[in-house]
Nucleic acid binder design. Structure first.
Lengths: 113, 113
DNA sequence: TTGACGCATGCCGATATAGGCATATGATGT
DNA sequence: ACATCATATGCCTATATCGGCATGCGTCAA
């Protein structure tokens, strides 16, 4: 088996640094492909391909505007990522008091099963 | 070029669902490889390989304990992920008032350059 | 020492990638 | 109809993956 498709998952889609850059840029508003490519210093086909992936996972929406195609952000898919990572907040804070409490809770929960 | 190495980046490391599961499990405390494998229904070599990746990006620490090897969480590396995704909160909330304000700010900032 | 256990690794196969370049597709204006 | 601009795609190369299976390596117990 190979690695999961970049289009299988938001987590996979944002594993690519340039795709993350695209998303960041799009926070400032819709943009056509060429402009994105220019601002990020990448070729147009490259930008198009990344956008294709982002579109596939729903992080980006496109709209035809004359002979251009405007790409806009749809960040809803990033919420699960934020929440998932947020589930580790107690741990990276290394607040071991609370961490201890958490582990104690878990142990108790187990015994009560 | 191929896809970036899973060990190049925390974003790449957590692109794998099973690795995410491992991290979640480890919140409840250190565990030896076999136990992890058992709880997640995967073979031992598979678990070991995933742990190797997680270790490479620093999301996991290991400690020798007799003939076992205990793996523990080190979630600090997940903080950047949380923060990056958090940077899109305004957008997935679709609070377009604030979004508008944000975009206006950007425009103004540009003009003032 | 010998055996058993816990884990890491190596090799293989199948697959999907990212990027480059050329080109197809589509809409626009003349 | 035609030339042009904006994008999307296709093909190709090199690479890194994930999973399975067998096996190597270190540790402990008898």
């Amino acid at each position: 088996m190979a690695r999961a498709a970049t289009t299988s998952d938001v987590f996979n889609a944002i594993a690519e640094p340039q795709r993350r850059e695209i998303l960041v840029l799009l926070r400032a508003g819709e943009r056509p492909v060429t402009e994105l490519a220019g601002e990020l210093g990448m070729t147009q086909p490259r930008a198009s391909k990344h956008l294709r992936v982002l579109r596939a996972v729903g992080l980006v929406r496109d709209r035809k505007a004359g002979r251009q195609r405007m790409y806009g952000l749809d960040a809803r898919g990033l919420r699960p990522v934020h929440e998932w990572a947020g589930g580790f907040e107690l741990f990276w804070n290394e607040s071991f008091d609370r961490l201890d409490a958490y582990v104690q809770d878990l142990k108790q929960a187990r015994q009560e099963e």
